[in-house]
Design a binder for these strands. Sequence first.
DNA 1: CAGGGGAAGTTGTTGAACGATCTTTCGTGT
DNA 2: ACACGAAAGATCGTTCAACAACTTCCCCTG
Lengths: 224, 224
Amino acid sequence: MAERANDDEVLDRAEKAAADIRSSIISGHFTPGSRLSEQALGVALGVSRNTLREAFRMLTQEGLLVRRPHAGVIVAVPSLASIIDIYRVRRMIEGQALRGAPPRHPAGRALAAAVDTAVAAREAGDWAAVGTANMEFHRAIVALADSARLDRVYANISAELRLAFGIIDDPEYLHAPYVDRNASVLRAHAEGRSGDAADELDAYLIQSERTLLAAYARGDRDVH
Amino acid sequence: MAERANDDEVLDRAEKAAADIRSSIISGHFTPGSRLSEQALGVALGVSRNTLREAFRMLTQEGLLVRRPHAGVIVAVPSLASIIDIYRVRRMIEGQALRGAPPRHPAGRALAAAVDTAVAAREAGDWAAVGTANMEFHRAIVALADSARLDRVYANISAELRLAFGIIDDPEYLHAPYVDRNASVLRAHAEGRSGDAADELDAYLIQSERTLLAAYARGDRDVH
DNA sequence: CAGGGGAAGTTGTTGAACGATCTTTCGTGT
DNA sequence: ACACGAAAGATCGTTCAACAACTTCCCCTG
């Protein structure tokens, strides 16, 4: 009864609906600012309004949706403030995780695997895959901290971040520069130079943030 | 648009139900491990099952409730791992917030106010109020980081922490030692000695964690 | 063309219903 | 007496239909 430990892949319908909506948002199928009708979406996903509302509640808490009382939910529109905030949290969490990472931590393998995947995807010119691998790299960094709560926080932030990435259309421009940087961070970490790894990552994140903010200021964002 | 969080006091019924349940858990009225029946609670709170389920969903994501499929929700039982994790996250967030706190930040006033309140409550022997003031002190520390997302994360962690505090019956033992420590941290912060403030806080949190873990190991926890 | 006033559409919430699944009880066999 | 298993009972998961409260949109008026 107590020693199950494995996360049952049994998602209930509300969770499945939430996952569907989440991926639709991240993939850009639902653009920021667009309205999600309970009835229409419920029919489309094959769930009842009540169940769909539970899914909305989850995604709202994740910051992907915004509820306006009696006026429906809309896909959250990334703001300058939210981008800045997300990167501030990322630098804090990832930096500390990397700095305090114990050697030979299991997540280290995930780190290396993510870099390999990204490099392979780059060769293949599959920039979307490069982006996914890069995100996985950062998830693995956070996993180094061995904190279930931090993992959860980061999962939420990742989703919001992907939403913000949507304001840049060119995935190569968005993800390509970081593959080698990831490899460099990984190397420093693997060689036990935690401080260097963290410092590199910090500079890396600052540049990434700047790129996003510049695109935002340039007005690349979807004009809902 | 950034200065005042316009917290509309307009909570829908699900949010109100969640708030009720949350305070019942924190106040110890619902003890860890106890089961919350949808029908019974719905009647007690005057909401329908569907609405109550939305509340459950929120509290589950906050870590206060645990859902067992087809077997109802129970109040989360703090575990050694969760206590350790919570304190790890606290040290990370509060430490960084304090270290990087800009001088004359608005939250500084909240910090001072919390200390004053705690001191007054101690004089009055109102240990519950001391506890609340202490929690507020830490909330204010996190607010120094100026991050909406961090604030939200910390709010969740606070609720879980209060749940864990429930394993110690003696609120004086639990909260009294930290009033003066808070004052000391505040002083260091106010005088611009951010590093000292953060270091003091770190030692403080380690002791607090140790106290909790000791109580847990001693078996003070509720034997549901 | 601006503003006001419905009309129509959506959300918020409830109650009932039914299948699916967990718990408890009860009986049986050793 | 105790372990084991099966049926009964209780509860959850989900849907549907309904209605009030509220928003949004469109049309009408000045």
